[in-house]
Simulated scan of single mutants.
Amino acid sequence: MSVVLTEKVLDGRALLITLNRPEARNAVNGQVAREMAAVLDDLDADPTLVVGIIRGEGKGFSAGMDLKAFLEGDVPAVDDRGFGGFAQRGPRTPLIAAIEGFAVAGGLEMALACDLIVAASDAKLGLPEVKRSLIAAGGGLLRLAQRIPYHVAAEIGLTGDPLSVERLYQVGLVNRVAEPGHALDEALALAAQLVDNAPLALEGTKYVLENAGDWGMEQGWEKQEPVMLRVSSSEDAREGATAFAERRPPVWRGR
């Protein structure tokens, strides 16, 4: 039985990805990681899809690693993709996390591996690993330290307690705050702002954004050059200019 479900939405231009282990609070085991990695490979391979939305079935997004499975030797990671099948190396296609209920431990790490985060106002987001004599090594500490003020990241990592969605919104970790039960609706509305954009440009923009912090400004100019040239010399770039001049919607072909 599949534990990661998919459905094309927004006229087939976005992929809704559902973690489907509600009886286990969508905890991540090896099967989840493998299926998620395969789904995200398919997302990148489908030129009609320009964004993915990840949600959890049931009461929450994900409680993180399936500890029972882990104790039995089940590894919730896939090669260089890392925890959950994408926490270390995600897809080229932008991802949006739609969080209801909770995203804790590895669940938050998967959300942090997404490019945009929508969370219900009453959701619990946190990294409780220190309470189990573990560290959040699935990218949680690394990404928090890069994206929000140090003392806020330290509070999350060192106390192990969740912070309110409102506070995480204020420090820029959450993009949209939704009414409870409407995180997916808000995520779909956000995805609708992406789907009309050129897929090659979205992919190139995501690549530069993901790496700019490591490159720094001086190296960044050099590193983004081939990305810019590949996108600006594409058929879609010519189509974008032509459509603008002709005052019509562009027709993207992903090449």
Rank of each mutant, 00 (worst) to 15 (best):
E7V: 05
F244Y: 11
R255D: 14
G56A: 05
D42R: 14
R55T: 13
F102D: 09
M36Q: 06
P162N: 01
E155Y: 01
A192Q: 13
G82H: 07
A137E: 07
A98I: 09
G90C: 13
I148S: 01
E166Y: 01
L67M: 06
Q146M: 08
W221N: 15
F61A: 02
D185Q: 15
S121H: 02
Y169S: 02
A191W: 03
G58P: 12
A33L: 06
E166L: 04
I96P: 03
A241R: 10
N175S: 11
G12W: 07
W215P: 14
A201V: 11
V32K: 04
Y207P: 05
A154C: 03
V32S: 05
N197D: 03
N175T: 15
E23R: 07
G82I: 01
V195F: 00
E23P: 08
V177E: 02
R248D: 04
T205V: 05
Y150L: 14
M65L: 07
M228P: 05
M110Q: 11
D41G: 04
P199G: 10
E235K: 06
G204F: 00
I156C: 06
L200G: 12
R55H: 08
A69W: 05
A37T: 02
A201Y: 11
L190I: 08
L108M: 15
L163G: 01
G140F: 03
D41C: 07
S233M: 10
G101T: 00
E35D: 11
L16Y: 01
D122V: 12
L144D: 11
A87L: 09
D41Q: 14
G107F: 05
E155G: 09
T6D: 00
E179W: 11
L209V: 15
L209Q: 15
E7I: 08
G254R: 13
L190M: 15
R147F: 10
Q193I: 13
D196M: 12
V171M: 05
P149H: 04
G85T: 01
E109A: 15
A119G: 06
A201C: 14
D185E: 10
I117Y: 00
A243R: 13
A191D: 10
R25K: 10
A69V: 03
A119S: 11
R81N: 01
G181K: 11
M217E: 12
I54R: 13
V208T: 02
A33Q: 00
L209N: 12
A87M: 03
L168Q: 08
V171T: 13
R89L: 15
K59T: 07
T205W: 00
G216E: 11
T48E: 14
M228L: 07
H151D: 13
F102Q: 02
V3W: 06
G126R: 03
S233V: 03
P47H: 14
W215I: 11
Y207I: 06
E179G: 08
